[in-house]
Design a protein around this nucleic acid. Structure first.
Lengths: 177, 177
DNA sequence: GTATTCATGTAAGACGTTACATGATTCA
DNA sequence: TGAATCATGTAACGTCTTACATGAATAC
């Protein structure tokens, strides 16, 4: 069954690749992972403490400059087991995508509502910008067959997101006058 | 800018159509609205109290049988204003869709991972079931041009969801061996 | 009479966001 | 020397889920 605490699995997944500081993990959420999951440092630092208490990770202090202390976290064998168990588990039900725009649409009853076209144009632009951004990322990261094979899952989700945004753009254009 | 408290807007949107009890509102989240937003009664009852305190709604007691009290809520003119302001407001940024399956995919590095095909099949089935369900709803609710024109926004989001699931099913099939 | 649905609420905890708070290092 | 970034943390608040809790009406 699908478990809670997704954030902890993401952190385990990242640390399974290489040891990182809380700051590094926070940064990861603004780039690659940020495309499909968001978390701020105020969520990450407490999570790291709990995970260490639970024995999934450990840390070593690294001094930068003369006294700035960096906590470099590594995954433990117990943490690896937890991560692997999650990766092979069923992902459970499909949850509804909570989208504010879709919500508003539900309450617009009239086909000729003056707001409708404006809202559709707004959304089309947002999805177009997102599509362009994702295609940029794809070109930047997956420039060769080798790169694709090295991070195949990441390649798949980028492709998935790009195709989704293409469909979105197409859908909005269909209903624009 | 996009505001918080989406639940309150949904409730206002529902009460703008007709007076309803908390129980009726809860039920609405298991059918139509449930396709794109979820909320339980433990969220709805406290929300109704706050909204009444804020002057957006009022209620009258209706007796069912001999003593079962039902609170029938109606939207006030102030509530209508709040709803309309929200409907015409910008929906803001596109937030990442938090999907557990996508998350797992990110950490599957190897193209030939034994788990990958299994996970893809699982997801394909979930999306196929969802697609069938949505198409059933579409046939059930929008059986005539008249019905489409009466609830045009609802028609749009159902069409949007169906097209999205079609794209999903297609995408998963593309990566299945 | 008993099971299901109708009907309303509270409590505890998990999860998430924004704001508050501090200090070191690096680059211009 | 001042701004941007590195680095780590807490507090307050808001949202959401699960469980607890009660009782009436209806259909079988």
């Amino acid at each position: 069954m699908a478990k809670k605490n997704k954030l902890q699995y993401i952190i385990l997944g990242l640390l399974n690749q290489e040891p990182l500081s809380g700051y590094d993990i926070t940064k990861a959420f603004t780039t690659d992972i940020g495309e499909f999951w968001q978390a701020g440092h105020s969520q990450i630092y407490p999570a790291l403490k709990i995970m260490e208490k639970d024995g999934y990770i450990t840390h070593e202090i690294e001094i930068a400059g003369t006294k700035l202390e960096k906590k470099i976290y590594s995954i433990t064998s117990q943490g690896k087991k937890v991560l692997m168990d999650w990766l092979v588990s069923d992902s459970g039900e499909l949850k509804p995508i909570k989208d504010e725009f879709i919500l508003k649409l539900y309450f617009i009853k009239n086909k000729d509502d003056v707001q409708l076209q404006q809202r559709l144009i707004e959304q089309l632009q947002l999805h177009q910008v997102k599509l362009d951004h994702l295609e940029g990322r794809m070109k930047l990261i997956f420039f060769s067959e080798e790169e694709i094979n090295k991070q195949y899952g990441h390649y798949l989700i980028l492709d998935h997101a790009i195709e989704r945004e293409k469909y979105c753009v197409k859908w909005f254009k269909k209903y624009l006058n």
